[in-house]
Design a protein around this nucleic acid. Structure first.
Lengths: 235, 235
DNA sequence: TGTACATCAGTGAACGCGCGTTCACTGATGTAC
DNA sequence: TGTACATCAGTGAACGCGCGTTCACTGATGTAC
């Protein structure tokens, strides 16, 4: 409020612009929920009481809006998982943190199914995700890998083939700045990434409707899977 | 060829009709590959050299065509998995059969990514799958459950909660006619279904592009996951 | 402090295209006597 | 076997709607002297 008076006029315009961008994205997110990934610029503009061409002041094309939504989505999910993980007081209790993080993923997905589908569902036809998204995309698995590194008990014995170890080492190295103490041997790296994939499987299977008419006790089912994966990791 | 002469005329018309339906579905499948699930009736008609309204002689609406494609897809996948499983000569070798079935799923998905996405990807906006699809959908997990029933070693210890056991028992009972000797205790039922879900996760993760820029050794990665799941099942 | 100029947000019309579905119709194919 | 009728496949026009993107434009807001 008071800031307005101190700020130079240029910043006001910049801030209004930023707020507009936020509102466009938020309206677009609402549309994702009903229309899936065939997001319509005109519908978004309509909802905002603007003419469709006005949106081009903010996003050079529909794909750029989609990209912004995807990056935001990955970050929102990552933040939710980090927050879930952070609720565990004892930072050395890997198993508790694993449950907290896993449940946070599922809770986020159930709360925003369309956004989850945009991130993890079938690729949008004709849309090519730019490089900007990959950093944000790694935020969630990063949390899970950090938890996997806490494993105390011996993990499930695995001997990943050399080619795979090379791939995974590359990823972990790229994360080294963010994840300093990577005391993950190849086996644990492989297990950690696999646990993430299988977790994704559990969430997607439920969210994409494959559990319909089959399993109703979904919380319990998910927790059971979390437990199996924790065992797998040696947490 | 000769059959034409013997067959009553009415059957000829019926057969031409069946062939037309097949061709429509096959053209539609090709379109799925490029356009994702926003399948266009007009585009299909164009490819067949027909006027779009002519398709209504064969399918009452676009959704009915989609449903037919979905049912066909589930059946094709199921058949591929059954064929994969059948290549293992020693029918008591559960672990070999598990690998064969799992690899068949992935191979089918990689060969027909758009169809896989239609079955297992984000739900098509506005489309409600009718009950016709559920039977076909169970064909693949049925094979996997039959293999899980072969487990000789003790499986990973699990104690599924009562509500979940009830759900899974219901499903297995429904399959009882097809799967006669269901010597699956609740724990193994739960493990079998979870292994299927995690397998789905592995395939979807790769197919939906989440492995891009991360893992290149995909065959090895998948096999590693198959092995972990086989261990989980006690195969 | 006041004025001339540049920047920027938003308008409205248009381009060129797509879609699912309906409907009255023409001809060919099959059926019944 | 031949003829009258019914069935069915496919046409072409139309309805009513959607879309992304471009472009010349009006006014308001911010900047520099």
């Amino acid at each position: 409020v008071c800031d307005n008076l101190v700020m130079p006029a240029a910043s006001i315009r910049a801030r209004v612009r930023a707020e507009m961008i936020d509102e466009i994205k938020s309206v677009a997110r609402r549309h994702l929920a009903s229309d899936g990934a065939n997001l319509s610029l005109r519908a978004v503009a309509r909802d905002m009481g603007m003419v469709s061409s006005a949106l081009y002041r903010y996003f050079p094309s529909r794909d750029d809006l989609l990209t912004a939504l995807i990056v935001d989505g990955y970050n929102a999910l990552g933040a939710a998982v980090e927050a879930g993980d952070a609720t565990v007081a004892d930072r050395t209790d890997g198993r508790a943190r694993w449950y907290a993080a896993g449940r946070a993923i599922r809770a986020w997905a159930l709360a925003r199914p369309a956004e989850y589908a945009l991130l993890f569902g079938s690729p949008v036809p004709g849309y090519q995700a730019p490089q900007d998204t990959v950093l944000a995309a790694r935020r969630t698995p990063l949390v899970l890998l950090q938890i996997a590194a806490l494993a105390t008990r011996p993990a499930h014995p695995v001997s990943p083939p050399a080619a795979l170890t090379r791939d995974l080492t590359g990823v972990v190295d790229a994360l080294a700045e963010v994840l300093p103490a990577t005391d993950l041997d190849p086996g644990r790296m492989a297990l950690g990434s696999i646990a993430w994939i299988h977790l994704f499987g559990a969430v997607s299977f439920e969210l994409f409707g494959q559990l319909n008419n089959v399993v109703e006790a979904r919380d319990e089912y998910f927790d059971l899977q979390l437990g199996l994966l924790a065992d797998l990791l040696g947490l």
